[in-house]
């Protein structure tokens, strides 16, 4: 699952989940190709894309898996999202149903993967702000409640996309390092103290200076 090659490269798997037509694929293409509904795409498939990142000397290899949004493929979800380090749950701010779907996904992911997975909820199509039907406060309070970050994005106007992926990646790195630290401390200290709870460092305060 979370693996790091000897060279220190992190391999992370990220799944994009959400109902059909909320713009999952557009978000992905905007991030990888920086294009929207463009005729001149170099990749012709948007189901699996790779991105190499280097944040402060930490190499991260993101594998981003797009999933089918149609309801008839819903049952295939677990096959796609198992072993993933992060999930981006996309909804359309003009479509209340798509937000309900996101809630369902969150429930399912929490049940299947526990808290190992980093969740990001993305309200897409903010270029259509005037048609908004999903209340801003509701979406944000829900996200905080389930421990997910909330982002507003527009693949069309290129808003929030880069930030979303960058933040997700940083959080996955933090989570990974925390876990491996916790592993180390658990194995080394298990004989000395057994009731010490692992220190909860806040999500994005990973030491940037190193």
């Amino acid at each position: 699952m979370m693996t790091s090659a000897p060279s220190g490269t992190h391999n992370f798997k990220v799944v994009l989940l959400g109902e059909g037509c909320v713009g999952k694929t557009s978000l992905l293409l905007r991030y990888i190709e920086d294009k929207f509904n463009d005729k001149h795409l170099t990749t012709l498939q948007a189901t699996f894309l790779n991105k190499k990142l280097n944040i402060n000397g930490k190499r991260i290899n993101l594998s981003i898996w797009d999933t089918a949004g149609q309801e008839k493929f819903h049952a295939l979800g677990p096959i796609y999202y198992r072993n993933s380090n992060g999930a981006i749950l996309v909804y359309d701010i003009t479509d209340e149903d798509s937000f309900v779907k996101v809630k369902n996904w969150v429930k399912e992911l929490k049940k299947m993967l526990g808290s190992d997975i980093v969740l990001i909820i993305a309200g897409n199509k903010i270029d259509l702000e005037h048609e908004r039907t999903v209340p801003l406060e509701e979406a944000e309070s829900y996200s905080t409640m389930v421990g997910a970050k909330h982002y507003y994005t527009s693949a069309k106007l290129n808003q929030g996309v880069e930030e979303l992926f960058l933040d997700l990646t940083r959080e996955m790195v933090d989570r990974f390092e925390q876990n491996s630290q916790a592993d180390v401390s658990r194995t080394s200290r298990v004989l000395v103290v057994d009731d010490e709870t692992p220190v909860q460092t806040s999500c994005c305060s990973g030491n940037r200076s190193t």
Binding site: S63, A75, S84
Partner: peptide
């Protein structure tokens, strides 16, 4: 060591999903 998130894993997963979809009788 490379994780199971590379493109090969994706292709295999796709095949698995397809088989699952056929199996499920959907």
């Amino acid at each position: 060591g490379k994780g199971d998130s590379d493109e090969s894993a994706f292709l295999i997963t796709t095949l698995e999903a397809v088989i699952e979809h056929i199996q499920s009788g959907a």
